[in-house]
Amino acid sequence: MNVKEGDNVLIHGATGGVGHIAVQLAKVLGATVTATYSPANSALAQSLGADHLVDYTTAEVDDYVATYTDGVGFDKVFDTVAGDNIQKSFQAVRFNGHVAPILPIADPLQVALKALSFHGVLVLIPLFHGINHESHGRILTMIAELVDSGKITPIIDDSNYSIWEVARAHDHLELGKAVGKITLTV
Rank of each mutant, 00 (worst) to 15 (best):
M1H: 05
N2L: 05
K4Q: 04
G6C: 11
G6H: 07
N8P: 01
N8F: 09
V9N: 03
H12F: 10
T15E: 01
T15R: 01
G17D: 05
V18W: 01
H20E: 01
I21Y: 00
A22D: 00
A22M: 00
Q24K: 02
K27Q: 07
K27G: 01
G30V: 03
A31F: 10
T32I: 13
V33Y: 10
T34R: 04
T34A: 08
T36R: 00
T36Q: 07
Y37H: 00
P39Q: 09
P39C: 02
N41P: 05
N41Q: 11
L44F: 00
L48Y: 06
L48V: 04
L48C: 05
A50H: 08
D51S: 13
H52A: 02
L53Q: 02
L53C: 00
V54P: 07
V54K: 02
V54N: 11
D55Q: 05
Y56H: 08
T58I: 13
V61C: 03
D63V: 10
Y64I: 04
V65C: 02
A66G: 10
T67K: 14
T67L: 06
Y68H: 15
Y68I: 03
T69W: 12
F74Q: 11
F74R: 02
V81H: 05
I86L: 07
F90A: 07
V93N: 06
F95N: 02
F95K: 02
G97T: 13
H98R: 09
H98M: 12
A100C: 14
A100I: 08
P101F: 08
I102F: 11
P104A: 12
P104Y: 08
I105M: 07
D107T: 09
D107W: 04
Q110S: 14
A115N: 15
A115S: 08
A115D: 10
F118R: 00
F118D: 04
F118S: 10
H119V: 05
G120L: 15
L122K: 12
V123R: 04
L124W: 09
P126S: 13
L127F: 06
F128V: 12
F128Q: 12
F128H: 14
F128M: 14
H129I: 08
H129Q: 14
N132A: 14
N132I: 11
H133F: 11
H136T: 15
R138V: 14
R138Y: 09
I139Y: 07
I143H: 04
V147A: 09
S149P: 10
G150Y: 07
I152F: 10
P154F: 09
I155N: 02
I156S: 07
I156D: 03
D158L: 09
S159A: 15
N160M: 06
S162N: 11
I163K: 14
H170I: 15
D171I: 03
D171H: 01
E174D: 13
E174M: 04
E174F: 02
G180R: 07
G180H: 14
G180P: 01
K181G: 00
L184T: 04
L184H: 00
L184G: 09
